[in-house]
Design a protein around this nucleic acid. Structure first.
Length: 330
DNA sequence: TAGGCCATCTGGTCCT
DNA sequence: AGGACCAGATGGCCTA
């Protein structure tokens, strides 16, 4: 964010010199329609008490009062007021549309998260946090080729998430609550310690102040499973997000959704030993191009079988990210 | 009832 | 000039 804003003083001066604005605001009592119902934060109230632009106009004619310096206030005619209101109404509509677009994008993001639920929607902030963790976790899996162990992977996903969201993630990934709970980290942040209710299972996301996030490397140091040792090992070099990974400017990586498709034992119960079989939702076009019609992921990461869900439709970009492209094209 | 989350309005700033 | 983006304010809804 490189935007620079005017200093407060400059802003106030700017506001005070903007005669049309307080005129418009001072004429607020004329606004009887829907948009006038909201006159937020004191500014308006303060402005419309004293100044009446029409009075200012009149003061020029009776010579008794000292002449004011600065720009002359223009009379707030009905036409100007209408223009002002029309502009405001238009801007409001644009802003609504913009926010709806933002929310739609957020909804799309929710759908490709490991735990998507129409009934229990992740909040905006939790969606973004989970997305960040998800990208991070998947990147590490791809780059290291290591097997994500069940708990460890969930821990990565849950870093910095609220307790309810962590529970949701753990639940969606069908990780046994007890196993997760009992083998939790010895290293706990004070923040998280204080957040554990005792009456129910709660997956506690380990040691991440939230917000803001701390350094990813320090988070990785909290990871116990040997699977992720490599992630903090400098010899593994440049692949952790906060360090030296060059910014990715290529096409979007398609959503890779772990959707709770665990291997099942013969009795139908989930086999947690073979958990985290990845269910990839790849657009068929890119896959056909890259790998014929096979839907199995066989490459530098042979451990993971990625059955392709051809029914996935919502992702518009028939592209794969560079890492997956490299794998597919081998 | 307090707190979290959200939608909306609004004015300021930047950009085209 | 007008649109996009941003952040503050506000009020409504929901839940613990």
């Amino acid at each position: 964010m490189t935007k620079t804003y005017a200093k407060p003083k400059e802003m106030s001066e700017l506001v005070s010199s903007q005669s049309w604005m307080d005129e418009a605001l001072s004429s607020q009592d004329e606004m009887k329609e829907e948009d006038s119902r909201q006159a937020p934060y004191g500014m308006m109230a303060g402005l419309n008490e004293e100044h009446d632009s029409i009075e200012e106009e009149e003061e020029e004619e009776d010579g008794e009062k000292p002449k004011r310096r600065g720009p002359k206030k223009k009379k707030m005619t009905k036409a100007r007021l209408e223009r002002f209101r029309a502009r405001r109404v238009k801007a409001n509509a644009r802003e609504r549309t913009r926010m709806h677009g933002l929310n739609d994008a957020l909804d799309n993001l929710r759908r490709v998260m490991p735990c998507y639920s129409k009934t229990q929607k992740l909040s905006k902030i939790e969606t973004l946090r989970l997305a960040r963790n998800y990208i991070w976790a998947l990147s590490e899996v791809l780059e290291t080729g290591q097997t994500p162990e069940g708990k460890g992977f969930v821990e990565m996903l849950c870093k910095g998430l609220s307790q309810p969201t962590s529970n949701l993630v753990a639940g969606c990934l069908q990780l046994g609550p007890q196993s997760l709970f009992l083998e939790k980290h010895e290293e706990k942040s004070p923040v998280c310690d204080s957040a554990i209710p005792s009456h129910t299972f709660n997956y506690q996301s380990p040691g991440l102040p939230s917000p803001p996030y701390g350094n990813m490397e320090t988070h990785l140091l909290h990871l116990k499973p040997p699977t992720f040792k490599s992630l903090v090992d400098p010899s593994f070099g440049s692949h952790h997000p906060d360090c030296t990974t060059p910014p990715y400017e290529g096409p979007l990586t398609p959503p890779l959704s772990i959707s709770g498709n665990f291997s099942l034992k013969q009795d139908g119960s989930p086999d947690l030993d073979k958990s985290y079989t990845f269910m990839a939702h790849y657009p068929s076009v890119s896959l056909a191009g890259a790998h014929g019609h096979t839907s199995h992921f066989q490459s530098t990461v042979p451990r993971y079988e990625l059955p392709i869900d051809m029914s996935y439709e919502s992702y518009p970009h028939h592209v794969v990210g560079p890492q997956l492209n490299a794998i597919f094209n081998e």
